[in-house]
Design a protein around this nucleic acid. Structure first.
Lengths: 177, 177, 177, 177
DNA sequence: AATGAATGAGGATTCATTCAT
DNA sequence: CATGAATGAATCCTCATTCAT
């Protein structure tokens, strides 16, 4: 994953992947039939972890304001703890190698977020409008927030005060009224 | 640019670039000494155009609400008219080949946005907080907004009603009070 | 080596080298990081062998006349047994790719010859004059002698009578008085 | 010629040749149909000049000792005045591009030298043996003599005392008795 | 099952040659 | 006639994949 993050999928060589993993190139091919399938597996693994982090943190019965805070904090924490994984997932293009199973994991996360938005809109807590658009705005804001760091610097997603400030701003974007 | 957008910089071959440009591979090397320098030039060209589009559209003396609308519309329009250029600029990683001159163009855009935010904060029109964070949130929201499209589908950034709805939402995130 | 001899270093392609070696192009790069380094290795290998052939054949305690005969015969034999290697070493320019380690091997041979000449001059057996000049004349004569062959013809360095005749002539050039 | 000397024929580019000549690449092709033919012309030009230098300097009726001195001095002078031309002619391989007309010029020089040797042998002034072998030894010695210089250093062929010393040594190799 | 050398197709780059200006 | 940009085959080198050990 780290190789992909630093060099892009196409810019990474299996030799580099193997070396960082501390195994031989041939060994990778015992577990993955191709570079593409390895890319898929890496994507699914980390996208799945991000999804789990959210699902574990959010109480679906809580009011939107609360649920949103839980969601935002969970994702910011994930991005702070695994900055390279988050960068791999969100700052790159995966179309070249992502297959349907990989896409499915991504869709699960969107579905979760959509359910949250729709419920909030029905409760009059979230601004009306196409749910996918609101998700795109809010998730995009999160990605921008974590990216607003020069590589190597401690991610702003790790500063609790900043995380809270950003969360409040984004909630202002989502909330109804 | 189109090749880079579709296949990633590292995933693009000079042969493909040449073919799409309708020239021979060797001809590219008469204008650019390397693939990297070509990447740089493409980046600078389009980042520069995006910057120009904003600068031309925004009245720096206008109230923040107005200036923001101008900025948002200019960028949404740019993304709608040049979806692949915008995708190349914003959905990808350029670290592998971007040199200082390329970075400089990117910094100009940030500087412009920062000036806007700072002025708005001084006027009490924009929410307090680190300007760069607010820019990251808003610009991230824009990127998310334009990205919220399955490839081939008409970009949401091209639908005037959606653009307005998104603009209002993002302004709600930025405005003071 | 054979490719370099026939086509010059710059005129040889790695593909040709690989084909003659009976391996794939990529395999060469597992052993040598570049064409230059391959050229170096080839040079060092054969220059080293030529040096060994001399060192093994010459008795440094013998009178100059004897030692010279041993040296001349050893080199003539080397040139007759490895005409292409000798041609590679002596009929070509290596400046474009030879590094210091390659140069060092060449210098060893010169140093050996210089010691021989100096000792002979001290013993009054070899004509006075700058040792390096005498070496250049004699070694040049050897190179000329072996070169005096149209490609494909049996090398004159392989005809014992000719080798002896040449040796006597060159000794007449070197001997004192 | 300078480009060929420094980089080898195969290692030289027409672009470099053109630049040093102060003309455009296309202009070369108005005078020479190909790189090979240019190589030929350069070879013939300089080999012809070397030949002329000898022919002009040598009195064919003079005794061998005298004629040899004239020949040696003429060539040493040529090598001293045109070190790069001499290096191009003698330190390199021309087989890859030399055609019959180029070879003819080289053969003329050999023929001239052979006539000298044969006449000297008939007069009992030059050591018996295959004339071509003696020529190879003597010409090889000359090449070695001029080569005995580190690039950039003033050529030993330019030091009159050295030239005379070398000439005497080489004559000792050739003379009868 | 793990290894890593071998393979050769593919990629970036060069360069002899052409040809419109 | 001179120029030098354009061409694309050929060159050096890389890298996904295979397979004998």
């Amino acid at each position: 994953m780290r190789t992909f993050t630093e060099n892009t999928f196409a810019g990474s060589s299996m030799a580099d992947v193997a070396q960082r993993a501390g195994v031989a190139v041939g060994s990778i091919y015992r577990h993955f039939p191709s570079k593409e399938s390895l890319g898929n597996a890496v994507y699914q693994l980390w996208k799945g972890r991000a999804l789990s982090a959210i699902v574990a943190a959010v109480d679906p019965m809580a009011p939107s304001r609360t649920a949103f805070a839980q969601m935002w904090r969970a994702l910011a924490r994930f991005a702070a703890e695994h900055p390279d994984a988050f960068a791999f997932l969100e700052y790159q293009q995966h179309a070249a190698y992502l297959d349907s199973s990989g896409q499915a994991t991504a869709d699960e996360l969107t579905a979760f977020a959509r359910a949250f938005v729709v419920r909030g809109q029905q409760a009059g807590e979230i601004r009306p409008g196409p749910p996918d658009m609101l998700i795109a705005l809010a998730y995009g804001a999160l990605v921008g927030f974590t990216r607003d760091v020069h590589p190597g610097a401690p991610p702003s997603a790790g500063d609790p005060a900043l995380v809270t400030a950003a969360e409040e701003a984004v909630w202002a974007m989502l909330r109804a009224g």
